[in-house]
């Protein structure tokens, strides 16, 4: 028999929608991008076949990118609304913010030392340093990909302001940044979200929006302490998600995981046969 677990709220609904949005656009971009990058191999030809050909794939890639940019823009507006501007110092640099601080560097050192049995485990607050790194990776990656992508999409407009050889560099940077993002998401992010023993088979927090209290006690003790101190622990208690919703997001997450792993394996196998130029 399972005992009743207490859940507390970690992500709001809008944050979860942002994550879902970025999942859908990112998978589209990765698939269509790879279909074009690997067109000289069977792997790329298969992907291109799914997306309706070389020319159609780039159209989907463009509109997927537009949706991703809209997501980014909406997120910027969301941040602007969410920051408490009267109390901006506390709001931006406080523990509920994604802005990295000195504490993160300390946690990193503590975490590494603890691995070798020195000292005690780091007391993470609401956001630990790997989570912050992932967030800022997307935050800088999306504009970079958007700018270079738009430059390549509209070369005639770009060359009214910049010399043509910038397009050579833009193509390289777009490709490299995309590979970096894909490597990080499909290897590091998926590994820590799906395969880490405490999270296996899937970390539900980002879909259900809540985490069990005992898990928080173990992983984010500083956050729990802060909640208790401020007396917010009762407020942030959340309902468990319904069964149909759990089934839905488990299948969705597993499908995303499978697509990611498929792309990574395909890239590793067929990478040497890619003919760029």
């Amino acid at each position: 028999m399972m005992t009743q677990r207490i859940y507390i709220k970690r992500y709001t609904r809008i944050q979860r929608i942002f994550h879902l949005w970025i999942i859908l656009t990112f998978l589209t971009q990765a698939d269509t991008g790879f279909s074009r990058l690997f067109i000289t191999t069977d792997f790329g030809r298969f992907l291109t076949w799914i997306f309706g050909g070389y020319a159609t794939a780039i159209q989907i890639h463009f509109w997927g990118g537009v949706l991703m940019m809209v997501c980014f823009g909406t997120h910027i507006i969301y941040i602007g609304i969410k920051v408490d501007w009267k109390n901006w110092k506390k709001s931006i640099f406080g523990p509920d913010s994604m802005v990295p601080n000195f504490q993160d560097a300390r946690h990193l050192v503590e975490r590494a030392l603890w691995f070798f049995g020195i000292g005690s485990p780091p007391k993470f607050d609401r956001w630990a340093y790997p989570e912050k790194f992932g967030y800022w990776g997307v935050f800088w990656g999306v504009p970079l990909l958007a700018i270079t992508g738009l430059m390549l999409r509209f070369p005639l407009l770009t060359t009214q302001f910049l010399p043509g050889w910038v397009l050579n560099v833009a193509a390289l940077v777009h490709r490299a940044e995309a590979l970096l993002a894909i490597a990080f998401i499909f290897v590091v992010h998926f590994f820590s979200g799906h395969l880490t023993p405490s999270k296996f088979p899937m970390n539900e927090a980002m879909f259900s929006g809540c985490v069990p209290l005992d898990e928080v006690e173990e992983e984010k003790p500083a956050w729990l302490e802060r909640l208790k101190k401020e007396g917010k622990l009762e407020i942030v208690q959340a309902k468990t998600p319904p069964l149909w919703y759990r089934i839905l997001y488990f299948s969705f997450g597993s499908a995303a995981f499978a697509i990611g792993i498929y792309l990574v394996i395909g890239a590793v196998i067929y990478g040497r046969y890619v003919q760029l130029h």
Partner: peptide, 13 residues
């Protein structure tokens, strides 16, 4: 092919 190309466009390598 690239109708409207200017001098800067021609410096693409």
């Amino acid at each position: 092919c690239h109708e409207g190309a200017n001098v800067a466009f021609g410096t693409y390598l």
